[in-house]
């Protein structure tokens, strides 16, 4: 089988398994997995920038939040229907990421990390500042009545799971496709050696800019979907913690692999879920995981599997 045929087969079987799981899992795990699929979509977006392009952002929560509030505020304040609100959410994230890219891409390395962190902090604080509309930390709920698309009730667990799966599959297939095309190869080239890439005649800035926008838009779509499927919009999702999470998921699952983001999100979600049963200091797990990953396993789970056993892994 050719490389691309293998990767299509892998992604299709993954989606098929996730589809079957919808009908075999207990209610509790079905609910968890629906949430994980949305968060893994966020991680897929993060992976485009960090894993493939080699740009480490510490502020992706602002894109997630742009999607979340871009969808949530028009629904909450103006009673907009879910689908147009979803489109607005993604557009907000795309616009914000274009703006951030224009500014932040003037910097590299550590400065890029800090600038993205600072911009995200501005977005977070702005959500608190405009508390009259956003209701700040407390957030607001999107009622069940508003979360209906063409007669489908998104609050129904199975519908919600399938909607999350649709979102995840779309993001997965889009990124897998992008990474098999020339554009994707150039992103990897930028990650590996920016100057060489420039001197081979590639417009490095344009590629990095588009990578930020694609990454930010996918993250925003995840944010918008989160608001729609789980009905809650709050400032927590814009906090630093939600910028660290996708980094953690992608590092754990394997940066620069297509299914690493899902693997990382599943592991971390259950690890934190499990530990929060007996301590409120569950973020300790995240801290320890970050240190251990960066010390001992930079390629993450799927990255190690690719290195050791399955070199064709996309």
């Amino acid at each position: 089988m050719s490389l691309s045929a293998r990767s299509i087969a892998l992604h299709m079987s993954l989606i098929a398994i996730l589809f079957i799981l919808c009908f075999t899992l207990s209610d509790y795990h079905q609910g968890n997995l629906a949430r994980i699929l949305v968060l893994a979509t966020y991680a897929i977006g993060y992976n485009v920038l960090f894993g493939y392009t080699g740009l480490l952002s510490l502020g992706h929560a602002m894109f997630f939040a742009a999607g979340l509030y871009g969808l949530g505020l028009p629904m909450h304040l103006a009673g907009l229907a879910p689908l147009p609100a979803f489109v607005i959410g993604v557009l907000c994230a795309a616009l914000l990421s274009a703006l951030v890219a224009l500014l932040a891409l003037r910097t590299i390395g550590v400065a890029f990390m800090i600038v993205t962190l600072m911009f995200a902090q501005c977005v977070f604080l702005s959500i608190l500042y405009f508390g009259t509309w956003t209701r700040g930390d407390e957030g607001f709920v999107i009622p069940q009545a508003a979360r209906q698309i063409m007669g489908l009730d998104l609050t129904d667990p199975t519908t919600r799971y399938l909607a999350a799966l649709l979102l995840f599959s779309t993001a997965l297939l889009i990124t897998a496709r992008i990474m098999q095309q020339r554009f994707g190869h150039v992103l990897i080239a930028v990650r590996e050696n920016e100057e060489r890439t420039q001197m081979l005649g590639y417009d490095v800035f344009r590629h990095k800019f588009l990578a930020v926008v694609i990454s930010g838009s996918i993250s925003g779509a995840a944010g918008a979907a989160y608001g729609l499927l789980f009905g809650y919009v709050g400032a927590t999702f814009a906090s630093v913690q939600y910028s660290i999470f996708p980094l953690l998921w992608v590092l754990l699952g394997g940066a620069g692999t297509t299914i690493g983001p899902l693997v990382g999100a599943v592991f971390m979600f259950y690890l934190i879920d499990y530990s929060s049963g007996f301590t409120n200091a569950y973020m300790l797990i995240a801290g320890v995981a970050l240190v251990l990953l960066v010390l001992f396993a930079r390629s993450g789970i799927m990255g190690e599997i690719r290195k050791r056993w399955v070199p064709w892994l996309p």
Binding site: I188, A189, E192, N193, E195, R196, M199
Partner: peptide, 10 residues
Amino acid sequence: FQITAIYARL
């Protein structure tokens, strides 16, 4: 380049 610039990991 004067100092070799290739994609070492590719």
